[in-house]
């Protein structure tokens, strides 16, 4: 059985991602105890809350997360959980992220309504991304965010899919066993479930 830990930053809906992972064939545990990852195959950073508080909670666990990854563990960051994987964010000030991807989290441009809320299309750049098996180009996924991951030039190869909303931003990124989506797969109907199943399938590899 694939065991997934969903990290709880004590704000918002974690039940849906837990349900989605279980429906995809994994055993999911919601916990704020980072030590629990020693027994897990994968760690999910859920997409609820605000950057400063979530980053503060994660920073104390940075070393454990690093050794989890080097030991073969997989990561899935969702929405805010994706943004936490970048170098830094401008949300609510200037806060450091985990720096697994070089880049800055910035606000969406003011020529569009903010938050970016609803179902938008993804344009696939790398079909070989394990999350994208049987996911068609142009699929609609559910987004709910005001900030996006502005990737630095060195990360061009990490962008697997992108989305247009006022600006073209990365909607799926990956590097080794670290994956992240700006949309909410657990709230994106059948296509979203397919992406979660692909993640669980990748862990089983």
């Amino acid at each position: 059985m694939v065991r997934v830990v969903v990290l709880d930053y004590a704000v918002g809906n974690l039940r849906s991602i837990k349900n989605g992972l279980e429906r995809s064939g994994a055993e999911a545990l919601i916990t704020s105890e980072i030590a629990e990852i020693s027994k897990a195959n994968a760690l999910v950073f859920p997409g609820v809350g605000a950057f400063p508080e979530a980053a503060r909670r994660l920073s104390s666990a940075a070393d454990q997360i690093k050794s989890f990854i080097s030991g073969g563990g997989a990561i899935l960051g969702i929405c805010l959980g994706m943004q936490l994987l970048l170098t830094m964010s401008t949300e609510g000030g200037l806060y450091k992220g985990l720096d697994y991807f070089k880049g800055l989290v910035v606000k969406l441009p003011s020529n569009v309504k903010i938050p970016h809320m609803g179902w938008n299309t993804i344009k696939i750049r790398d079909y070989s991304c394990p999350l994208l098996g049987d996911v068609p180009d142009g699929s609609l996924l559910y987004f709910a965010h005001s900030y996006y991951a502005k990737m630095s030039d060195v990360e061009v190869g990490s962008i697997d899919a992108e989305t247009l909303y006022g600006v073209v931003f990365p909607s799926i990124i990956s590097k080794g066993s670290i994956f992240a989506t700006q949309f909410h797969p657990e709230k994106s109907g059948e296509v979203g479930l397919k992406i979660l199943k692909n993640f669980i399938q990748y862990i089983r590899r």
Binding site: V11, G12, V48, A50, L80, M117, S146
Partner: peptide, 8 residues
């Protein structure tokens, strides 16, 4: 909105 984010 500060605790949970404007989007919710």
């Amino acid at each position: 909105s500060e605790v949970f984010g404007s989007q919710c």
